[in-house]
Design a protein around this nucleic acid. Sequence first.
DNA 1: CTAAATCGTTCGGATATGTTAGACACTCTC
DNA 2: GAGAGTGTCTAACATATCCGAACGATTTAG
Lengths: 246, 246
Amino acid sequence: MTSILRAFEIIRTLWEVRSAGPSEIASLLGISKSTAHVYLHSLQSTGYVINDGGKYRLSYQFLTMGSRLKYRSRIFQVSKEEIRALADETGELVTLLIEESAEAILLHQETGSRALELGTYPGMTLPIHTHAAGKVFLAYMEESRTRAIITEESLERQTEATIVDAQTLQAEVEQIRTDGFAFDWDQQVQGMGVIAVPIVVDGVLRAVLGIACPTGRLRDETYRTELRRKLQEKVDSVTIKYRYGA
Amino acid sequence: MTSILRAFEIIRTLWEVRSAGPSEIASLLGISKSTAHVYLHSLQSTGYVINDGGKYRLSYQFLTMGSRLKYRSRIFQVSKEEIRALADETGELVTLLIEESAEAILLHQETGSRALELGTYPGMTLPIHTHAAGKVFLAYMEESRTRAIITEESLERQTEATIVDAQTLQAEVEQIRTDGFAFDWDQQVQGMGVIAVPIVVDGVLRAVLGIACPTGRLRDETYRTELRRKLQEKVDSVTIKYRYGA
DNA sequence: CTAAATCGTTCGGATATGTTAGACACTCTC
DNA sequence: GAGAGTGTCTAACATATCCGAACGATTTAG
């Protein structure tokens, strides 16, 4: 089914170039101009691509569908209020991440009054080994998957503190299993630290709730444990809501 | 190019049923089981569909792509801070809408401290004739399109106050052109009113900024003009930012 | 202001591609 | 433990995809 793959290649290309006509798409993908036109025309009739005056571009249908998925998801529905409350109480950046295809996806975030402004956005994907939340996923998923990701993946470096060694990562993962939470300093972006706690319902890891704040504030141990306590508190109430309804 | 259309039909179906296997998709779309399987398999390899153990479902790739489109858009970037500020200053719900394919799309929203909680979300689409923001679009788009939408579209009713008569709508649109803003009461949802102001840069309508609040508060005329003044103020600074950079 | 070039779009024929039924292994249900 | 359901895979057929050429319309170059 090359046509479907090609259609999504065109979508990706349209994302990259923002707007293009059949000729440009054709030369970028190495297909004929008329073929490119047929694809673009078909994509237009799905509503995911828009034609203004010969130039084609992606429509906000992606946002519509993506947001619907987000707002319909149970974990978002039951944790939305707690995330807002946690952001208000701590003033920091609170994030809800889920795992999909061995990647961490930022499903939702709320910013507190003194939260740092990262360039993060809902739907953003993050490599799983570069931050506390990702390591929680590694710690709580089925061990075979953990092993596969740790060894197979290339463990790309993001900052100087990023763990790129499989054994070190494995040890951290085991530590997280016993602790029930994860820390990181500077592993994703320099100057930022994260505390992350798993949301486990019926023995299944549903998501990870995290607080991101400047490394400076995190060095204070009493503040750190305070954050962790508040985080765990919210996770507990989210777990109950998820399990027992409403 | 029926395969592309069919692929997106399958995506729509997967949205509706949340999760399904080839057999279920096949019977829903009237195709053979093996065809459904090939489609699902291809969609999976695009990353937009995920296979857990035979059952297929949509991935958050839609959210990722949709959010990227949103966060990259110039109008969002230049108005983000003003929207947050306006929500803080007024305490109400502030919305940024754009028009696409004769529909209004809620690109962004920020909630103030006493804002009413509608079930709105970024990416949500709204019929264009049922609210103040939509009527601003009608007022500021090319007249031929306005006429086409007003007369062609069926003007579906949402509440008792929804304008479903083409002539009434036309008159309102002309009023908005002279006023430079739009009001509505109860036209989208009962008990809610909206004030909407166009964001026009270089003679082109880029988006509409709106404030939604309970009809009760809107009846106070001094409050109404106060809201409108603050709204216009933010729109002016957004316009300048959009036009002259940063 | 004209001419050449490039654009998006349309058409019909060669052929590559999608479609299908059937067979398989597997998992639940009864 | 039998049966009906599932997801997956293969191979042959037929259909729908792909391309080159040609059409206006628009933009660029002279």
